[in-house]
Design a protein around this nucleic acid. Sequence first.
DNA 1: TTGTTGCATAACCATATGGTTATATAAAAG
DNA 2: CTTTTATATAACCATATGGTTATGCAACAA
Lengths: 119, 119
Amino acid sequence: MVMQQINPSSQPENLDAVFAALADPTRRAILTRLANGDASVSELAEPFHISQPAVSKHLKVLERAGLVERAIDKQRRPAQLKAEPMHEAVKWLEEFSKFWSSSFDQLDDLLEELKKSES
Amino acid sequence: MVMQQINPSSQPENLDAVFAALADPTRRAILTRLANGDASVSELAEPFHISQPAVSKHLKVLERAGLVERAIDKQRRPAQLKAEPMHEAVKWLEEFSKFWSSSFDQLDDLLEELKKSES
DNA sequence: TTGTTGCATAACCATATGGTTATATAAAAG
DNA sequence: CTTTTATATAACCATATGGTTATGCAACAA
């Protein structure tokens, strides 16, 4: 079983790719499935009722986001979950919520609107 | 080979839209800007160096995700942050991390902090 | 009334998705 | 050698993004 290092990048620029990868229900389901263990392309295609090339495409999107790595096992290319890049997404949400929770309340919004309407 | 429950949590329809909305750096910047207070289209366009129609398009994407609401103030259409849908994204990540316990300690910590700041 | 501001929308372009079927190829099975 | 299996890739289609410029329109400003 030879490992294949395809996308080790886990940088903030990758946030776009991570969020985009998570924006598809099939890909989220694939990730959840992979959380239960590695799976080959055909193993992934079966429960989702989509073609094998469709799964290969989804896996490419996930690979670009760094959320999946592929191995080589004879003819199979089992996909393996790599959740590190999800930390970036969580970190962004965390930063945002810090920022937002202090300033987001209905009173502040009302006051803001009032100030604008006064002018 | 029989697959059981692929997806642990039945997800709200617009989880797709929320993640997709967050997948663009300009939209994330717009959201951060709106966390400081409502802003009109032209106020948003200026710092991002993109055209006014481009901002209008981004706002439509954010509106469809439920992350932004528009007001009517004379000719202006100030955008207002609605962060609630982001909770869905956080919830999905939280559910996911439950399923994937291995080497997810860091993510668990981040999610804990997120839960605190949400309340 | 005329001009200006704020915004939406149309029209257009290039690229990415998300799916398909068809085909190519390598490895395993016979 | 032939066939089957597992996967990739090409070719194609429809739709969504992300940007532009052009244009229209309502609301203000003068």
